[in-house]
Design a protein around this nucleic acid. Structure first.
Lengths: 106, 106
DNA sequence: TGCCTATTTGGCAAAACTGCCAAATAATGT
DNA sequence: ACATTATTTGGCAGTTTTGCCAAATAGGCA
């Protein structure tokens, strides 16, 4: 075990890994507007409900979203608005990439 | 193909995926201080140089870092400081998770 | 040219991730 | 208790990621 990467980076990668899927990015974007149950998200996304449930559990596990059971439905919310900052920072990086590409062409 | 997730989320996930590894998070943190060649990073990380090279190519491919060849070494730099914002946002999420856990215990 | 150092690439096996189906669990209403 | 609806869990096959080794590539220097 020669690897010297410490717990800090492990933890950071865990958060990033939780975001590293288009469906999960979509879910975060939707939960930003308002809470949603698994059913609603499944309808929007168009994959099997079990798949959506698993994506939600990954996000919950990373501490990014929280679940609240009401009646027989489970409503999900962003746990902390700070995730949205990551969201917009990622968009900044994408914009910066577009700018770099433009520069190269010109 | 019932999946309705669009290109925007694909692109965002791509960036996040590039960050989703402890070694790559470490590399970004180091490149923030100053540029480094593959050799130096390999020394710091403690894995095979080919592994480090592949991590670097993943980050480069995502437009997060840039490479400059000087003599027979390749020096890597952050392509855009905006990645650092993601970095600190991720740390915020971690801190928020810690706070939530604390609250739960009390 | 030949040698040395730095880096990248190809290939492979092990591990992790993804998405489906089926089954289990939970709450509600009959 | 039974049926219905919402959600989670287990399992499985297909795909992707990871990290090592070995080989290829590239630059500097004798």
């Amino acid at each position: 075990m020669a690897n010297k990467i410490n717990a800090k980076y492990q933890e950071m990668a865990k958060i990033s890994k939780a975001l590293a899927h288009p469906t999960r990015m979509f879910i975060i974007d939707k939960l930003n507007e308002k809470e949603h149950c698994v059913c609603e998200l499944t309808e929007m996304i168009g994959v099997d409900i079990s798949t959506v449930s698993k994506h939600l559990s990954i996000l919950k596990n990373a501490g990014i979203i929280s679940a609240e059971k009401r009646s027989n439905m489970v409503y999900y919310n962003l746990q902390c608005s700070c995730v949205l900052n990551i969201f917009s920072c990622v968009l900044d990086v994408i914009q910066s990439n577009i700018d770099s590409t433009k520069e190269m062409i010109e």
